[in-house]
Design a protein around this nucleic acid. Structure first.
Length: 271
DNA sequence: ACGAAGCCCTGCAAGC
DNA sequence: TGCTTGCAGGGCTTCG
């Protein structure tokens, strides 16, 4: 399930292969993704050069001259570069064909992903207008999080998974960051002290950076291989470890359901 | 304005 | 063994 580190790893992997290439066509085999793939996607993009490949939260942005292709991998999506005539497998929904006889191919079994087009400034787009800061920038600080958490009745895990507060923190890394910070996921957001906010922000940055570093060393070439990472799993401290020993204190990791999401924590290390 | 629940979808695991 | 059921997940959307 692609979270921010996987999306960033994908961005870095595909960029050298697609930047400054011209789009020669688009093939849509399945338009019913998270939102319908726009019918005009092909005519809007064909003939244009990909100027840059950006990321905002978990969205990938292909910057063209006349607008932006917005990509999201949902939870089962992946991108690969293939020779343009490679037969499509099941769930290979969209190809963006390039002038180097290759296609950027979206594979997404669960179809929670998205391919959209906008000719407007990306920050004006509905999906991006209300997003919080990027977690790995200096805009995301303990002071900022502390200020926004005042008078909030939600728990701290929901707080950091709220894209209006900070983007790109999904279920797995929310659990991991809370473990690093020693904070219980169910704690009310407005009970978080300023120093604990500092610690939490540091935890979020650390876990994301770690995962990006791990992805960077594992996924070397996006033009071959099956594109299945799964590289970070061995480093997880609490996620998906219900009933197992805490790596830090040896006590048993617990799982609770919060906001319909599995939440893992160590009752001894997290208060 | 906020927070909680619902929904989209398929693959896989567990249970019968 | 073959079916059915439940669960997982991001995150927008709807409802309260």
């Amino acid at each position: 399930m692609p979270e921010l580190p996987e999306v960033e790893t994908t961005r870095r992997g595909i960029t050298p292969h697609i930047q400054d290439r011209r789009i020669t066509g688009v093939v849509v085999r399945q338009a019913r993704l998270r939102w319908p793939v726009p019918r005009q996607l092909g005519q809007k993009t064909t003939g244009q050069k990909i100027r840059s490949v950006l990321r905002r939260g978990k969205y990938l942005l292909l910057q063209l001259d006349a607008g932006t292709v917005i990509l999201h991998l949902g939870m089962s999506g992946s991108l690969r570069l293939v020779p343009w005539d490679t037969p499509a497998d099941k769930h290979d929904h969209v190809d963006i064909q390039l002038d180097n006889k290759r296609s950027l191919r979206l594979h997404d079994p669960r179809r929670f992903g998205a391919v959209l087009w906008t000719s407007r400034e990306i920050s004006q787009h509905k999906l991006f207008k209300h997003l919080g800061p990027e977690p790995l920038t200096d805009d995301f600080t303990g002071a900022y999080l502390h200020a926004l958490s005042r008078k909030r009745k939600c728990n701290v895990k929901s707080l950091i998974m709220n894209a209006g507060i900070v983007v790109g923190v999904g279920n797995i890394y929310a659990c991991e960051a809370l473990f690093l910070a020693g904070i219980r996921p169910g704690l009310a957001a407005d009970k978080l002290s300023r120093p604990r906010c500092e610690k939490l922000v540091a935890g979020i940055k650390a876990v994301l950076q770690q995962a990006i570093a791990a992805g960077g060393t594992t996924l070397r070439d996006f033009t071959d291989g099956d594109g299945k990472p799964g590289y970070f799993k061995q480093q997880l401290q609490v996620y998906d470890r219900e009933g197992q020993d805490c790596h830090r204190c040896g006590q048993t990791i617990k799982r609770v359901t919060s906001a319909n999401r599995s939440t893992y924590y160590c009752p001894h290390c997290q208060k």
